[in-house]
């Protein structure tokens, strides 16, 4: 083995010594032990590598990201059903094509008719929950929703605004356009904020309160706070097992 080949091999020899027992390096290492020139080259190479290992190890990984990932793992199993919907859609399309059906455009997400906002939010959480973009940056999430024509909240309750954001989604549904922004609470609870573009269209008529006095109720496995602001319906949902009246109220306090 000439020194050029030995250098090529030793250039992928990790400075930590993790490859010491790999026979791939044996001959090149033995040659370096005998050849002072190659030995000097290897020493310099390892020092150079160690400097970059050190530099890369100095890059900070944000703790908030770790927290959000763990919150994702602790979220209710049903809320992660989104992970299967691409497969379900692909299977459905395959079936339709087999049947000779031509899809001209994707249909809107069908939601129960004449339902309340709480019933729709419960339906979305249980059957259609998905995250289109995961990001801890609320500005980016707003921009992502806006680019897709989804409704955005004019105001976010002050207690909710303090929480870390996890991701968002938006749908075109039979009840109009709906957006979702997911937050992570202090107890690692998943907090969903649904925004309905037009809560008066196709829904059961509800006299919705304002953001300062939201209506609290429980629907299925979820506890909700509901209000109307700037013409849009808002539903804040938390899994009931992680919600309490005090906690729900805290999302609205300064």
């Amino acid at each position: 083995m000439d020194n050029n080949k030995a250098k090529l091999i030793l250039s992928v020899y990790r400075p930590s010594g993790a490859d010491a027992s790999d026979p791939f390096f044996k001959e090149a290492l033995e040659q370096a032990a005998k050849d002072p020139q190659l030995s000097a080259w290897l020493a310099g190479e390892q020092q150079f590598d160690a400097a970059f290992v050190h530099a890369l190890g100095s890059v900070k990984a944000p703790e908030a990201g770790r927290t959000m990932i763990m919150a994702m793992a602790h979220a209710p199993v049903r809320s992660r059903a989104w992970m299967w919907w691409p497969v379900a859609i692909a299977a459905s399309i395959a079936l339709l094509i087999t049947a000779g059906v031509v899809l001209r455009q994707p249909s809107r997400l069908a939601l129960p008719e004449r339902a309340t906002l709480a019933e729709l939010a419960s339906n979305l959480s249980e059957h259609h929950a998905s995250i289109g973009l995961m990001s801890p940056d609320l500005v980016r999430l707003r921009s992502w929703i806006d680019e897709r024509g989804g409704p955005l909240p004019e105001r976010i309750p002050p207690g909710l605004e303090k929480l870390a954001v996890l991701g968002c989604q938006t749908w075109n549904t039979s009840a109009g356009k709906v957006s979702l922004i997911c937050f992570v609470g202090e107890s690692m609870e998943t907090v969903h904020l649904y925004i309905f573009e037009n809560p008066d269209q196709g829904l059961r008529q509800e006299n919705l309160p304002g953001i300062d006095s939201p209506r609290m109720l429980q629907q299925g496995a979820w506890s909700f706070a509901i209000w109307k602001d700037k013409g849009r319906g808002h539903v804040l949902g938390v899994p009931s097992k992680m919600a309490s009246p005090e906690k729900m109220a805290a999302y609205f306090s300064i």
Binding site: G44, F48, A50, A51, H54, A55, L56, S58, V59
Partner: peptide, 22 residues
């Protein structure tokens, strides 16, 4: 995105500023 340099420098005869290296 770079953490403050630890007080002990990297054990290497080759040294380069972390920001410059990154």
């Amino acid at each position: 995105f770079i953490e403050q340099q630890p007080s002990e420098p990297a054990q290497s005869s080759f040294a380069v500023d972390v920001q410059v290296a990154m």
